[in-house]
Simulated assay, not measured.
Amino acid sequence: MYVTIQSFVDEYRNESEFTQKLLNALTDDSLKQEVAPGFRTIGHLAWHLVPSGGILTPTGLKFEAPPEHSNAPASASVIAKSYHAASQAIIEAVRTQWKDDQLQESVTIFGEQWKNGYTLSMFLRHEIHHRGQLTVLMRQAGVPVTGIYGPTKEEWIGIGMEAPL
């Protein structure tokens, strides 16, 4: 749970850069990749990563974002640009609309009382969770995956080292 605005801003800025790298690597063709027939595609999952109201709506934060539950665009660059704009808008909204003490205020989310600082934490964890799913689909689609918390196999090889198994 976040107890200062700056701690959220710093962590979300860092994590959103990782997400942005992955989204920037997508191609229009890769958006059609499914994990299995009838399951989410890369395009659907990538669009789901673009912040919208979601769990942040009950907190009262206001920011520019695509409409929640809108259909995923067929363009990877539109998804990447939309993510960039919405993630920056969230940072700006948190910085300008809240003070540190408001992170301790509670609102009802999923029938439970969540402090705003906890909600921001869950928002970020949700993104990280789906980002992990996205990397698996990217590999299946043949899209290069960049390392996030460490090098990928290809990055290990690129620096002249044997990739650990």
Rank of each mutant, 00 (worst) to 15 (best):
F39T: 15
G117H: 01
R131C: 00
I157W: 02
N14S: 14
T57F: 06
H48M: 14
F63P: 02
T19I: 15
I148M: 11
I79H: 00
T119R: 00
Y83C: 00
G60R: 00
M161P: 04
Y12W: 10
E15L: 11
L56A: 03
L45N: 07
I42T: 14
G60S: 13
P164Y: 09
I55K: 09
Q97W: 04
I79V: 12
G142Q: 09
L23G: 01
G117S: 03
A76D: 07
P51Q: 06
G38V: 11
D101N: 13
Q97V: 07
I5V: 15
F123S: 05
I157N: 11
E112H: 09
A74P: 00
V136P: 08
R40V: 00
A46D: 04
R139V: 06
R13D: 14
I157Y: 03
T59F: 00
I42Y: 02
M138Q: 15
G158E: 11
H69M: 11
T146W: 04
R40I: 00
R13L: 13
N24K: 14
R125W: 08
D10V: 11
T108S: 08
V9R: 06
E105P: 01
F123H: 15
F8D: 09
Q113N: 13
P73K: 02
A141E: 06
E162I: 13
G54S: 07
F110S: 12
K115N: 10
I159W: 10
T152D: 02
G60C: 10
